[in-house]
């Protein structure tokens, strides 16, 4: 058994102290240790984006990050989007636009879209496609997903 490492991370605003073996990924730890199963395990080679989470403000494929590397970092998962029990505008827009079919890729899509809008509140369609190029949807809901991001951006202007 490998030596474990003590890490301190902030997950969705809560400080957590964890003991992790070096070969466990951030995705393993989120899902198995913290029971945050929003981020999905899928391709495990950084191609599908289903495991996307935000680390220190930037999206990463959590299947390619060792948990121990995240020591000291601030992590947001899809579970951290809703505030005080009400959905984030982006989540609402995904529902309104029918962007979620089977739903498996949606947590990753949401995190990628969330980070995109944080840096670029009014993306063009091309910028949305580029920003979400690392997230595959096997149901092919790309049009609805793009519409949901556009709708969220437009709503952000109104508010």
């Amino acid at each position: 058994m490998a030596e474990t490492h003590r890490i301190e991370v902030t997950v969705n605003g809560l400080p957590r102290m964890l003991e992790v073996p070096p070969h466990h990924t951030l995705l393993d730890v989120l899902r198995d240790d913290l029971r945050l199963t929003g981020a999905k395990e899928c391709c495990l080679v950084g191609e599908c984006g289903a495991c996307t989470v935000i680390v220190d403000g930037r999206t990463v494929d959590s299947c390619l990050v060792l948990a121990v590397e995240a020591d000291g970092c601030e992590i947001t998962t899809v579970e951290g989007l809703a505030q005080d029990g009400s959905l984030d505008p982006l989540q609402r827009a995904f529902l309104d636009e029918g962007a979620a079919q089977c739903g498996f890729c949606i947590p990753g899509q949401l995190m990628a879209a969330h980070a995109l809008l944080a840096g670029n509140p009014h993306p063009t369609v091309a910028e949305i496609q580029e920003g979400l190029a690392g997230n595959l949807c096997r149901c092919g809901s790309y049009l609805q997903i793009t519409d949901a991001v556009l709708a969220t951006a437009a709503e952000g202007t109104r508010r």
Binding site: G46, G49, R58, T59, V60, L64, V65, A115, L116, G134
Partner: peptide, 9 residues
Amino acid sequence: VGSVQIRNR
């Protein structure tokens, strides 16, 4: 290179 997620790492 890759996608946003890849380029961030």
